[in-house]
Design a protein around this nucleic acid. Structure first.
Lengths: 219, 219
DNA sequence: GTTTTCATACCAACCAGTTGGTATTAACAT
DNA sequence: ATGTTAATACCAACTGGTTGGTATGAAAAC
């Protein structure tokens, strides 16, 4: 029991997290550049002095928001997979199912903090560029490991490079976000993911279901 | 000879275009929100008064930049295809080849004005949302027509919905931009496009080349 | 009593947009 | 050709408000 002063007047860790969570929400909605420090403070119920006590500058909370979002998304995926079948191919399917469910939840925006920061900042600011690259790489490595394990357990009928396919899937994911944002088409997002899933299945000789994503009506 | 005062002191059409081109370049590099009107004016060699004579507000030049970029990209693709083989499947290949060549040209950034505006503005500003959606839709319809024509000429061995595949390809394109921006990986971008190309080829029973994108070393 | 955590008040730089004006041009009359 | 007029194209200077960031101080925690 070393933690929790709980209901004390000050709680620096909680204040910091409130700021990060506010930043994440604002960045998801309107992007990083359009989000002002004042706005983050207002949303979090913290004054500017408090903000700059916890974060050296605006860049710092941007990076913290990216990290927070990465941790959140990663935990959602790992949770959805660790409960499921130990078969790596089934875990891969669980991953796609989670992505699918994500877009059906209207509370959660079809957006990604890491993608946003990559798009807005990568070409202008090396710190954001390498941070976004690191997050993308970590996500890709997670997918890659699943694909490697799936290859070991299920001999593929078509050979493929797991790393390359993992980058493909993550690129498709990010791009579907970008396109769905303006077309406001959740069904298109989900169809994209289902096509990718059935594409990967085909490597293992798994035939598409009768309701194939390539031809079936939208859902 | 109705046109061209040429070297006169005033040239409203040229001034407007200078502003749009400056906006496009700045948006590609640093995004729309981070680009100030002053910056656009400086880059174009036009004063603020001149700017607001041609554009009602900042939104107006954002939309004009999106339109200008759309026209530019579309013309690059149509040019690359109208010179090529009339076979729609070959034209589709020419499309992928153009995309590939695009990323090898270091002068041209790996970025898209429409994707940028969709990412930054779609959730906050209806005008940008519908403009980006219109451009994405137009690009997708172009691809869809090629796929429909290819299906008519070459009976596919796997049936597919051309519209859905077109959205898939364009989403992958946008996402590859987002990811490549931070990972700075042109080869990954090109591998993604080659995998999509061979995926589509497989619908028509065309086997992957010996240097298959799924396994071959990067280029 | 020192350090941490936060609040208040403030700053220079920059933001989109406006002002009031001038120079250029096209249309037309002479 | 030339003078007149009206509209267009452009400019320098400015406005109110916002930006990221700071200086100072006070209350809480150790």
């Amino acid at each position: 029991m070393k933690t929790k002063p709980a209901a004390s007047k000050r709680n620096p860790a909680a204040t910091r997290e409130k700021l990060v969570m506010a930043a994440v929400q604002l960045i998801l909605r309107q992007g990083f550049v359009a989000t002002s420090v004042d706005q983050i403070c207002r949303e979090a119920g913290v004054t500017k002095g408090g903000f700059f006590h916890h974060f050296e500058n605006k860049e710092a909370i941007g990076l913290a928001a990216a990290q927070g979002w990465f941790d959140y998304v990663t935990s959602v995926y790992t949770q959805s997979m660790e409960g499921a079948d130990p078969d790596p191919l089934e875990q891969l399917h669980a991953f796609f199912d989670t992505l699918d469910a994500f877009t059906r939840d209207s509370d959660r925006l079809c957006a990604c903090v890491v993608g946003m920061l990559s798009q807005e900042m990568a070409l202008v600011h090396p710190g954001f560029q390498s941070a976004a690259a690191a997050h993308f790489t970590a996500w890709t490595e997670g997918l890659e490991k699943l694909l490697v394990a799936a290859k070991e357990k299920h001999p593929p009928v078509i050979d493929f490079d797991p790393e390359r396919v993992a980058w493909f899937v993550n690129s498709l994911w990010q791009g579907s976000i970008v396109v769905a944002k303006s077309t406001q088409s959740g069904p298109m997002f989900r169809a994209n993911m289902r096509m990718a899933r059935e594409w990967i299945d085909s490597f293992f000789g798994i035939p598409p279901p009768q309701q194939c994503a390539l031809t079936a009506p939208a859902s």
